[in-house]
Each structure stands twice: as structure tokens, then as C-alpha cells.
Amino acid sequence: MSPHDGSGPKDAGAKAKTRAFIALAVFLLILGGTYVLQPDDFFLYVKAFHVIAVMSWMAGLLYLPRLFIYHTDAEIGSDRSETFKMMERRLLKVIMNPAMMVSWVLGLYLAWDIYGFQGGWLHLKIAMVVGLTAVHMFFSRAVRDFAADRPRGAASYWRIWNEVPTILMIVIVILVIVKPF
């Protein structure tokens, strides 16, 4: 594999970025088309798209620390370490960042349009989503640290962090479904 034959990791990264951009553009076109057409059950479409975005974001938040756990065992500079760097970067940039943004935009729209930002459960839910966003930002920094071969932390450290998004997700789902207050 030559660096000049278009088959290197940078070319693969550019292709992945292009595919992600196309997928996001298609998703936004479908969402925009739904908004323009304004079917009677428009808010159900928004809810569905919100759930899809949240599922994608959560998949990344649950998988990225697992990659960190495996990455800590890879020798710095090894092919394995470089592969983990690429996987972490792509997961963050191609899936997690767009999914988080769409989750926030649609979630805030639903909070405003359906609930008028009323309800203690909603305020607590938004606080938990702010917590998820903080975890996302923390993981983003870790991706940069791993990419720069900075100190990694032990696998046990990342195993603990792997549980944080799960706990926040459980609280959020209970708040949304039960609406306890």
C-alpha cells in the first residue's frame, strides 16, 4: 500500500468523512422535508428523529470508553495503537458529535413545543443531558490525549468512566417515561 495510490489511512478517513457528511445531509433533508410538509403528527416525527439521534449518541458514549480500555493495553506507536486512534477519532467526529448536536436541537425543540419547558422532571432531564454532554466533552479530550500519546490512565479508570453514561441514561429514560414530578 503506497501513500500515493489513494489507499492509505488518510484516504480511508476522507472517504469515511464524506460518507458521514452525506448521511447527515440526507438525515437533515428528511427532517427538513418533514418540517416543510408539516404532517398532522409532525411532533411524532421529531420525537422519532430525536430518539434515533440519542441512540446513536449513546452508542458512541458507551463504546468509546471500551476503546480506551483496549487502547491502554496497546504499546504507544504500535500499529494497534494507531488503529485505536483512528477508530476513536472517527467514532467521535463521524457519529458522536453530529448525533449529540441533533439530539440537543430536537430535544430542545420538543421541550419548548410540547412541554413549554415546564415540569420538574424536564428540568432534571435537561440537567442529566448536560451531564452527558460534559462526559462527551471529557471523552473528546481523552481522544485528543490518546492521539497525542499523552498519559492514558489505567484500564480500570476507563471501566469506571464506562458506567457514567449508562447511569445518566437510566435516569433520563426513567424521567422521560415516568415523569415523576
Rank of each mutant, 00 (worst) to 15 (best):
D40L: 08
W121T: 06
P9E: 14
F181P: 00
K179W: 01
G120S: 06
M1C: 02
R152I: 05
W104V: 14
A127R: 07
I160H: 12
I177Q: 11
F43P: 00
V105D: 06
V173G: 08
D149Q: 10
L24N: 10
E88V: 01
T83M: 08
A48E: 10
K17P: 00
V173S: 07
V105H: 02
H71L: 04
V102A: 11
S103V: 06
V105P: 01
I170M: 14
D41H: 11
A16V: 09
I69H: 12
T34C: 08
A25V: 13
L92F: 12
I22P: 11
G116I: 04
M96F: 07
I177F: 05
M101W: 13
G131V: 12
M128S: 08
R150V: 03
G77D: 04
N162F: 13
G120Q: 07
W112N: 10
T18D: 06
V164N: 07
V130H: 10
M87G: 00
W161E: 10
V94H: 08
S81T: 07
V173R: 03
A16K: 12
P98W: 10
W158F: 13
L44A: 05
R150M: 11
R141K: 09
I160F: 15
I174L: 10
Y115I: 02
E82D: 15
D11H: 04
V26A: 11
L64F: 11
Y35D: 09
T83Q: 11
N97D: 05
L37G: 00
A99I: 12
I30Q: 07
G6M: 13
D79Y: 05
W158I: 02
A148N: 11
A111V: 12
P165Y: 11
W57A: 03
A59E: 03
V51A: 14
A134M: 14
V51D: 04
Y109A: 03
H71K: 02
G32P: 13
R141A: 14
G60S: 09
T34Q: 12
L61P: 00
P98N: 10
L28E: 15
A74N: 02
A154C: 03
A53D: 05
K125H: 04
P39E: 04
F138C: 03
I69E: 15
I69L: 06
D41S: 04
L91E: 02
N162L: 14
F43I: 14
L91Y: 08
V46H: 04
I30P: 01
Y115F: 13
P180W: 03
V135G: 02
M101N: 08
G33P: 11
R144W: 01
A99Q: 11
P9T: 09
F68I: 05
L91D: 04
A53V: 03
R141V: 12
M58L: 15
W112T: 04
V105Q: 09
I174N: 02
A148F: 04
G13K: 00
T83P: 00
M101Y: 10
V51F: 15
A127M: 11
P180D: 06
I177E: 06
L67M: 14
D40H: 09
H71E: 12
I76R: 04
A25F: 12
S78A: 06
S78N: 12
R144G: 13
L67K: 00
L175Y: 01
V176R: 05
R80W: 04
P165S: 07
F117C: 00
Y63R: 06
A127H: 08
A154L: 08
L44T: 15
V102D: 07
